[in-house]
Design a binder for these strands. Sequence first.
DNA 1: TAGATAAGTTAGCCATGTCTAACTTTTGTC
DNA 2: GACAAAAGTTAGACATGGCTAACTTATCTA
Lengths: 156, 156
Amino acid sequence: MTKLQSHGREPFETVDRAPEAQAEGFATVRQAHESEMAEDYVELIAELIETRGEARPVEIAERLGVKPPTVTKNISRLKAAGLVRREPYRAIFLTDSGQELAEACRQRHRIVVAFLCSLGIDEETAERDAEGIEHHVSKTTLEAFGQALKQSWRHE
Amino acid sequence: MTKLQSHGREPFETVDRAPEAQAEGFATVRQAHESEMAEDYVELIAELIETRGEARPVEIAERLGVKPPTVTKNISRLKAAGLVRREPYRAIFLTDSGQELAEACRQRHRIVVAFLCSLGIDEETAERDAEGIEHHVSKTTLEAFGQALKQSWRHE
DNA sequence: TAGATAAGTTAGCCATGTCTAACTTTTGTC
DNA sequence: GACAAAAGTTAGACATGGCTAACTTATCTA
Ligand SMILES: [Mn+2]
Ligand SMILES: [Mn+2]
Ligand SMILES: [Mn+2]
Ligand SMILES: [Mn+2]
């Protein structure tokens, strides 16, 4: 497992990690990348349903900054994954499982954004960075963000 | 317009962003993904040169948790990108530009890890999450992390 | 209600990053 | 110095997530 624990809090020292531990870290990142598309889509679909009444491919494409055929293809993947329900040329709905994932993602997204803002980062930057960071935040880290956030409210 | 969460338990609000701003955020994430492979490789190569004297494909593969052919292919991409210098069957070296990128990445990695640890997150988790998070941390956010870190030293 | 416009899909292309199988080169050992 | 083992490469496959061009379907409007 770990080799050198820095007791003295020197933060700029490179920790010599075991090769397997390091590999496990990279594997975790690759796994996160695999769920990223699904997470961003269901999150966005939930938001569109809430704010616009329905989720249309053209809106999804606009908000994601991709072209409509990309959305068609990815939605069909989400459908295959059981996250989405829909018929051709119609609006998109979330399955129960999709709804559940969407809620978890929205919650996580909001916490990450709020946490970054609590560090004094402007909202635009916080949103931009959070869009990527969110997919790599473990349960442990998300909880730590939540705790730090509470502290920041106390001290303001 | 913003919406409040129904339960009142979570005081985070979903910000209704302009579609173009949101799209710009996703585009930033996609861009980050494009540089991710290069960043992880040069960072690792620099570490191996420092700690093991040289960077060999077999070590790189082991630490990244991928198979040797993957490393061969990616190293040739890095070479095409001018980040790496090497001859077949020999060890891998960084060009000046590769060296520069590696240093920036190592620095960023260390700051992210130290910052997460400063929130009370265990080192193993911090390393794992940082491996993904690092690629999505803007200059602004990295600076905020550095500032927060300084504060945490003061208060310990 | 016909025709125009907008929305959505299909087909086919491409780059990335992973893999296995098979081959080549280098290194180590006797 | 020969040969076995280890390291490295090559070839070819595959999944993902982008794209354009061309087609189909739905919606709007005169
Ligand atoms: Mn995201
Ligand atoms: Mn998000
Ligand atoms: Mn990384
Ligand atoms: Mn790293």
